[in-house]
Amino acid sequence: MIGIVNYGAGNIFSLTSALSRLGITYGMINSEEEFDQYSHIIIPGVGHAGAAMDKLNKSGLVDKIRSLTKPVLGICVGMQLLTDHSEEGDATLTNIIPLQTKLFDKELGIKIPHMGWNNVEIKNNLLFEGVENQTQFYFVHSYFIEYNPIFGIATADYGLKYSAAVQKENFYGVQFHPEKSGAAGERLLLNFSNLK
């Protein structure tokens, strides 16, 4: 059963709808104790990374999240929260994965936000099992996590190559929105729910 960290950062109706369509049960996590009720944890998030981190800090759940050994998936801003720092609001984040979240550079001739369906270059990883390389996922974001060969499990190209998905031990993050990425996104959520 998936526990969704309920720290007030944006809408989760689409995420819970996707889990329901997949027959994956879920519940909301509001306190440290509630983490124990779930085998898998999702950290959602939309909007401003600095503001989201403030809310996560206020929830008092950061230390507990850092200590988790069960599979954790951060989605979009939820993924960025796993990194060390974001240029959005010059925010210090959880530093669970030692990477930087940066603003896209419009000098690269790209429109910001990066909005729409983009191809994802996938490394062999259980999270993407059954998903073909170069499958498109739905992205909408202005800040990105730098490419890193150690923690990167998927990359996307938008002006530059950056991290579409990362993993460090039991912590996973995806920059795109699996709940909005059609059949491939649903497969990814199912894969996550099956991670040991």
């Binding site: 689409s14 329901s20 369509r21 739905y138 996104g185």
Partner: peptide, 28 residues
């Protein structure tokens, strides 16, 4: 939002933050 697995936008009659928030929470 319950049925759809792609993004969607809602327009029409949105004049204040509360309108937008209700739509966001409904899955837009």
């Amino acid at each position: 939002a319950r049925q759809l697995n792609i993004p969607f936008t809602i327009g029409g009659g949105i004049t204040e933050i509360a309108d937008a928030e209700a739509l966001l929470n409904a899955g837009a």
